[in-house]
């Protein structure tokens, strides 16, 4: 059912830009009518930005995050959409089918009142893995598990599940538990290969690692006296004189 990666990303971006336009229209409507409930006309849900550094809808991390697949179970039948489900030959997608949908689609279809589908928790947010995270968050390879562990975890809270408070608590505790190690490695690894240090980090933690490195690097280059040296811009270095013959056909 989920579209192929390439096409899917385009769809997400289109949905996002459509959403933006509709929000603009809403703004105008609000201005002209001055009353009226804003949410009335919005019949779908924007995929809110993840927990990343940047909060805009062009953030590549957010787009990739909205592509994470979630296991779902359909609660009503989707007539004539059977061609989307490759595993069966039926014409319709019947009620109770289990499949995987990307986050943006499951979030759009999910509604509390009209039950279209129910979303199951991916296994890393379930009880068993939560125990592991609570025991020692440092041993887990979040890149293999995620790589958007925190972002997807926060997004999972949109789907009403009785375990939500525990999930949110585990996310926070995992971040705190891994903080010290991330800070120490990012502030101490000067002039060395960092790929071994970052390979087990979540995307969010990787961004933090880079900002820690930038602080360290700028201090070290100042201390060595490199900060006061003026360097030529890459534009100047790459500039080549053009021959008139190349420009004229």
């Amino acid at each position: 059912m989920a579209p192929k990666q390439q096409g899917g990303r385009v769809v997400t971006q289109q949905t996002r830009s459509l959403l933006n336009i509709s929000v603009n229209i809403l703004g105008i409507q609000l201005l002209s009518t001055s009353f009226g409930y804003k949410m009335d006309t919005l019949s779908y849900l924007p995929v809110q930005p993840g927990v990343g550094m940047e909060e805009n809808f062009l953030s590549l991390d957010d787009i990739l995050l909205s592509h994470e697949r979630l296991p779902i179970r359909t609660e009503c039948s989707f007539p004539r959409l059977g061609f989307l489900e490759k595993s069966s030959d039926t014409k319709d997608i019947t009620e109770g089918t289990k499949m995987e949908l990307p986050l943006w689609l499951s979030k759009g279809l999910y509604e509390k009142k009209r039950r279209v589908l129910s979303v199951e928790l991916p296994k890393i947010y379930k009880e068993g893995w939560r125990t592991v995270f609570n025991a020692d968050p440092n041993v887990v390879d979040l890149h293999k598990m995620g790589p958007y562990y925190y972002g997807l975890g926060s997004q999972m809270l949109h789907f009403d599940s009785p375990e939500n408070p525990e999930i949110a608590q585990t996310l926070l505790q995992t971040f705190i538990g891994r903080f010290r190690r991330n800070m120490d490695s990012s502030q101490n690894a000067y002039n060395e290969d960092t790929s071994a240090l970052v390979e087990r980090l979540d995307c969010l933690e990787k961004a933090l690692f880079t900002s820690g490195q930038s602080g360290l690097n700028s201090f070290q280059s100042w201390e060595k006296g490199q900060a006061s040296q003026l360097t030529a811009s890459s534009l100047v270095l790459n500039y080549r004189k053009r021959k008139i013959n190349d420009l004229q056909p």
């Binding site: 809110q48 926060s154 949109h158 971040f175 800070m183 502030q187 933090l208 900002s211 602080g215």
Partner: peptide
């Protein structure tokens, strides 16, 4: 100055993760 970017970014992330915990917050609720 040496720790500023790292600490501020971490605190921002932690704030977002913490705001998930509050049930009444607008973020994360339908």
């Amino acid at each position: 100055n040496t720790i500023r970017t790292f600490l501020l970014d971490s605190l921002n992330c932690m704030y977002k993760l913490r705001s998930n915990l509050q049930p009444g917050s607008s973020k994360g609720q339908f």
